[in-house]
Every structure is written in C-alpha cells, then in structure tokens.
Simulated assay, not measured.
Amino acid sequence: MMSKGLLDPKVDFVFKNIFGSEKNPEILISFLNATLKPKNIITSVKIKGNDIAKQFIEDKYSRLDVKATTSNNEIINIEIQLKNEHSMIKRSMYYLSKMYEEQLGEGEDYSKLGRTVCINILNFKYLKTERFHTAYRLKEIETNEELTDIIEMHFIEIPKLEENSDEKDLLVAWTEFLKDPESEKVRSLEMTVEEIRRAKDQLVRMSNDAEQREIYEMRAKILKDKVSALNKAKEEGREEGKIEMAIEMLKDGEPIEKIIKYSKLDESEILELKKKI
C-alpha cells in the first residue's frame, strides 16, 4: 500500500480499474498515445473484458490485464507485473500470438488482420537495456530493416525511470504516476495533465471505498502468495538439479570432494544417494 492510505496502482486490480475504465477511456487513450507515439493519434478505444469477477480476484493465476481496440484498428493488451516470473518473454509472445491469431474466423482473409501490441509494465528490472521503455518488432538481423509493424511488444520497467527524466514526455509522466501517485512530481503533473488528474481522482475514490480496499487487500495478498509459491518451486527445482548432478557424478565414479564442490550438497547427503544407486 502507498503511504497516506492510497492504494498502489501497480497492483493489477487497481491498474485495471483505472486504465480499463469505460467511464474514463481518455486515461487509456492518453497512456497509449504516450507509449506508442503513433503517427495518427489514437482518438478512441473500445475496452474489452472490463468486468472483474470475484473468481478472477481469488485466482492467483488469473490475468487482470487491460484489453482494448483503438481507432487505428490495433489490438492492445496491457499487463502489469509486480515480480519477475519464469519465461516472461515466451509467455508474452504466446499471448501476443494468440491475440493475433484470434482475429480471424475460419476462411477469413489475412488482410483483415490488425496490428497487435502487447505492453508489459514491470515493477522490476528485467532487460539488459538501461532505458525504462523499450519496444520490439520483427526486423532483419543484419540490416535492421523492418519486416512489419504488425506485431509489437513493449516493456516499461518502472525502476529504471531516472530522477531527472523529462516529465514533458507523457510516458515519463504516466510512469511517475505508477511509481508513486502521491509524489510531488505527480501533484505537479495533476495541474497540467487532465488525464493524470482523472486517474488520481479515480485512485482516491477507490482508496476511500471500503469494499474496493477489501478486494485490493485480498488481491495483493494473493499476488504475494503467488510469488512465494513461484520462489519455492524455483528452490525445489534447484535442489532437484543438485541431486541429479550428484547422482550422475557418482555413477561416473567421481570423488566425493569433487561432487561436494560442484553439487553444493553435504557429504552426508551424497553418501545417502550413493546407497541408493
């Protein structure tokens, strides 16, 4: 939770309620124009799957993402992630491909396929680049010539936003809002950017609503439990890997000292494994 009682807009339930609101589509329009910087400004959006059913809130594997189509005939998916999860790029590519493929019914013309964009907002550093915003398309490996812009993937890594970033860049402004909506920077932005003021108003309304706060607390806990479960699975996988390595080295007749060094298992654990081979 943010200081002074405002809910954290980086929790997917809150993010979806602000940026996926059919009552305030100008918030999403502003964010998309800031992120995509299109030649033809997006003037309207059709938001899909706006309702958040109780079973989605309680399911730690559900994706409370924002889906929309734009006035530029683009299909957009925005997902916000608090913690690093396994195979995130592959997972994002899977959803991007699925969105692209689902546009056509059987026998329909490929020319009907619209531009498909996936935007990943991350509350952690993930990519090697130093920039907080990166975008990827299909390009020729050596000449960098673009094949098509029909599919596009964006990453916004909040912790990479630098203190001296230019707030006149609207994406910087929106990222500041997500980073800390109660900061002096955001208070100043509210005065100049109407959409940010509306987003902050919506956040204040949610924060003052007892029912919304209760749902938020539940969702925040579920997301925390999900991360703990993923970390535990990762640790268990690591232990299994050590045991497999030790067994293979024992079968190869390697000395115990060497197996301890490479597997990082205790001598007693290795001797126990030896009995089972």
Rank of each mutant, 00 (worst) to 15 (best):
L36F: 14
K60T: 02
V117N: 06
E108K: 14
Y262A: 04
I215Y: 10
E194F: 13
K37W: 03
A210I: 12
F155W: 11
S3K: 15
I89L: 13
I270H: 03
N40V: 01
D59P: 04
Q103K: 00
R219D: 13
V186L: 10
E140V: 06
T116M: 10
Q202N: 13
E267M: 00
S30Q: 05
D8A: 13
L32S: 14
E130Q: 05
Q81N: 07
S92L: 05
E248W: 02
Q212N: 11
R91V: 04
T43A: 03
R198S: 05
A220V: 08
G49S: 12
N50Y: 03
E217P: 06
E254I: 13
I158T: 03
E101F: 01
I247P: 00
L6C: 06
P38F: 03
E182K: 04
R205T: 02
I18G: 14
K261G: 02
R219V: 07
P255L: 07
A210F: 11
M88F: 11
L230E: 15
V66T: 01
A173L: 00
P255D: 07
E257H: 06
N72C: 10
P159D: 10
I150G: 01
E130N: 12
K98I: 02
E267R: 02
I119S: 09
A220H: 14
K185T: 15
I222T: 13
I151Q: 06
K185R: 15
Y126K: 08
L223Q: 14
I256K: 03
E152L: 10
K125V: 10
E146L: 08
R198G: 00
L171Q: 01
G114M: 15
P38E: 05
Y95M: 06
I270A: 04
K258R: 07
R115A: 13
M93G: 08
S268Y: 01
G114I: 12
T129S: 14
K264T: 03
F124K: 11
S87T: 05
I75L: 12
D266E: 11
D65Q: 03
S30H: 01
A246M: 03
I260W: 05
K275M: 02
E79H: 02
S263T: 03
M191V: 13
R205Y: 09
P159N: 08
M2V: 09
K242T: 06
R187D: 09
K160T: 00
I156C: 08
V45A: 05
N164H: 04
T129G: 07
S3I: 12
K67E: 08
G253K: 06
K242I: 08
E195I: 04
T134G: 01
L147I: 15
R115M: 14
K226R: 15
S188N: 13
Y61D: 09
N73E: 11
Y94F: 15
G241Q: 02
I42F: 11
D169Q: 01
K39F: 14
T35M: 10
E130W: 00
K4C: 01
I151M: 14
G49Q: 11
Q103F: 00
R137G: 09
N24E: 15
L113R: 15
C118D: 13
T43P: 07
V14R: 13
F177M: 08
A233G: 14
W174C: 01
